[in-house]
């Protein structure tokens, strides 16, 4: 067996995906080839180190439940991912706009009531051109292509996961990039 072919099978060996004969052949090569044996040793040592390092980073039990509860308890518009400065600016703009609308409506009502009730759309969603489409929407769009011919499922999965789990993973400048 060639060394590059052997080393390409390390993943399969690690995950016990090789047949008995393939495993025997590979083990036989490893006993005769110090380079491949060293590569496998190094890889296994890295795995152990990585596993230990990642285990130390596991958050305490119940942390996610607390975060989830906090997200659910907060009002929906606050869950939108946007730069802090944008939030501040938006709040200021919405405040001014609301005051202006109230002032105008109060003025009009003092003269005569409107003929039809004013039912503005939900401003928190409607008025911001920079508000990203919700993560749920993007994830639904991305995963909609899952069963298409030649869908790159590895990339789709990674992309959908990023959108599903973290709105802040969307770049803030996405609404300003040019079209094709």
């Amino acid at each position: 067996m060639r060394c590059d072919a052997v080393q390409r099978q390390f993943d399969a060996l690690e995950f016990d995906a090789l047949s008995a004969s393939e495993t025997t052949r590979l083990r036989h090569h490893l006993t005769a080839c110090p380079a491949c044996a060293a590569a496998l040793d190094a890889r296994q040592a890295e795995d152990v180190e990585l596993k230990a390092a990642l285990a130390a980073e596991v958050p305490p039990l119940g942390m996610w439940s607390a975060v989830e509860a906090a997200i659910i308890a907060s009002p929906a518009p606050l869950r939108r991912a946007a730069p802090r400065s944008l939030h501040r600016g938006l709040r200021w703009a919405v405040g001014v706009a609301t005051a202006a609308v109230l002032f105008a409506v109060a003025g009009r009502w003092s003269v005569r009531p409107p003929r039809t009730p004013v039912t503005p759309p939900s401003r928190s969603i409607a008025s911001s051109p920079a508000a990203p489409a919700s993560s749920e929407t993007v994830a639904a769009y991305v995963m909609g292509a899952w069963r298409d011919p030649f869908a790159d499922q590895v990339a789709l999965g990674a992309r959908a996961w990023a959108h599903r789990t973290s709105e802040t993973s969307l770049p803030a400048a996405e609404s300003t990039t040019g079209g094709g």
């Binding site: 969603i125 990203p132 489409a133 929407t137 993007v138 769009y141 991305v142 770049p171 040019g178």
Partner: peptide, 27 residues
């Protein structure tokens, strides 16, 4: 509302359109 461009440069490009009784999102 005018359509707004969202998500340019991502997996797709999106427009949000504010209708009288609904919001449309095209991706």
């Amino acid at each position: 509302g005018e359509p707004c461009v969202l998500l340019a440069g991502q997996a797709g490009r999106s427009l949000r359109i504010f209708g009288e009784d609904r919001v449309y999102i095209l991706v």
